[in-house]
Design a protein around this nucleic acid. Sequence first.
DNA 1: CACCAAGCAGACAGGTTTGTCTATCTCGGT
DNA 2: ACCGAGATAGACAAACCTGTCTGCTTGGTG
Lengths: 199, 199
Amino acid sequence: MLDDATESAPTARPSEARNRILDTANRLFYAQGVRAVGVDTLIAKSGVAKATFYKHFPSKDDLVLAYLDAVDKAWTGQLHAAAAAAGLDPADQLVGLFDALTSACERDGYRGCGFINTAAESTPGSPAHVRTIAHKHAVRAWITDVATRAGAPDPAALARSLTLLLDGGLAAGALDADPLTALAARDTARGIVDAALSA
Amino acid sequence: MLDDATESAPTARPSEARNRILDTANRLFYAQGVRAVGVDTLIAKSGVAKATFYKHFPSKDDLVLAYLDAVDKAWTGQLHAAAAAAGLDPADQLVGLFDALTSACERDGYRGCGFINTAAESTPGSPAHVRTIAHKHAVRAWITDVATRAGAPDPAALARSLTLLLDGGLAAGALDADPLTALAARDTARGIVDAALSA
DNA sequence: CACCAAGCAGACAGGTTTGTCTATCTCGGT
DNA sequence: ACCGAGATAGACAAACCTGTCTGCTTGGTG
């Protein structure tokens, strides 16, 4: 009864099949939305048995959360990389963030921010919604840090402006894949950062 | 056969039942997303017969498009009203736009931009997606006009910056109903407009 | 009055969705 | 040689979704 070690607890550990499922989910959920992709499709496309699927992810919602975690990891990584590539000056890093946006928009099949899209499909208060808020909050907290290092008089306000711009770029880029949009976001960010730091 | 006048062509004219359906759709689609609301729910909540529903809207997608038209009318109206309320100076009007954002975020049950949310649920190329792009384009064109009247050296670029900010505010406000977000958008807009006009 | 458009009520068809369950196969380790 | 973990294949249940169709009621108009 209480012997947890041998019972079939939801496997969170890596596994060949689990990776395949997660991989398929990442592609399909992003491309079509979480609601448009059924469990059967996921199973078929990842070449896995139904029982295996439900063993690793007791419900579809669990898979959605795992998908969101993957999106978080990917996007956060891209932001950090873009900042690092912009040099050592924190002010340049703040602007450099927007190179991640440009790269994302250029990628084929770009469809905006996985978090925002998923949140649009889930009701406020749901786990997916909550996780989206946490993600956005973490990103903004990190940008606030960079803004602090850049010596901004009001780092929180600067970070807020920049995240607004970033989210706007993500949302707009999902509609028309106009490269000008991302570039405009970057230019605008440059202006905002310069104005904030020269105050 | 060819006598169109008497056959049951999809009624686009107003009608008591039609209004009720559209009204329910506006509420439910916005609150829960178009995919989460089934035809049966729509019918039950608007107290209408199924046949009546399908007479006015031959398919659910038709209703979705009608819903988007309503969203367009509402949001465009609010933007125009906010601009007008900001006074006669076009520069003030550009900033005043963001009062519409603030009001929207404060409204109870606010869940972002109906267009962006619906687009997140529909595949690129679908009628809903196309209509969303058209809506965003129309808004930006109008803002470009105002920017031109304000004497901006590059009205298109200014409008692009402002719409990015606006979309960002719409997306962010849908997650956490933090009133600071909308205010930050307005402040940022003020800075951008002033910078653009003093160039 | 007779007619007809508009609406109501609800059964029905056919497909899809999530999730459970049984039965079998294939390994690696002891 | 054997056992158990993990995988496969697929039937099945129960709900739900879109869309069609038949019948009945009602109110206005020629």
